[in-house]
């Protein structure tokens, strides 16, 4: 999971660097830049989150299945 997080973070960093823009002096409207940044990254953030949860669910399912097999094996040994 840590490796996946790292890969996702690197993807996010690449996104940041690709869209980095120059600062400009202007009257401050506190919300505009924050809103735009979120819109700009909506797809990336949503995609990364989907991938992370999907991988987490898949991993949990594999672990669950493996532990079920293990308990089946030990039950057959008892018999």
């Amino acid at each position: 999971m840590k490796k996946l997080n790292r890969a996702l973070n690197i993807a996010l960093a690449c996104g940041c660097l690709l869209t980095i823009c120059q600062s400009a002096n202007a009257y401050i409207d506190a919300g505009s830049g924050s809103y735009l940044l979120q819109i700009l990254f909506a797809g990336l953030l949503g995609g990364l989150y989907f991938a992370k949860t999907a991988f987490g669910n898949l991993k949990a399912a594999v672990v669950r299945r493996a532990s079920m097999h293990k308990s089946d094996d030990s039950a057959s040994h008892v018999r």
Binding site: T19, Q22, S23, D29, S32, G33, I39, F50
Partner: peptide, 29 residues
């Protein structure tokens, strides 16, 4: 990047235009 976006779009007045462009998965992300 957030700081730069704020400075660059300080007078953009974006709230109305940005509606409809964000989803639940994006916010969870």
């Amino acid at each position: 990047l957030h700081a730069r976006m704020q400075a660059k779009n300080a007078d953009a007045g974006t709230k109305k235009e940005t509606r409809g462009g964000f989803g639940k998965n994006a916010l969870l992300g």
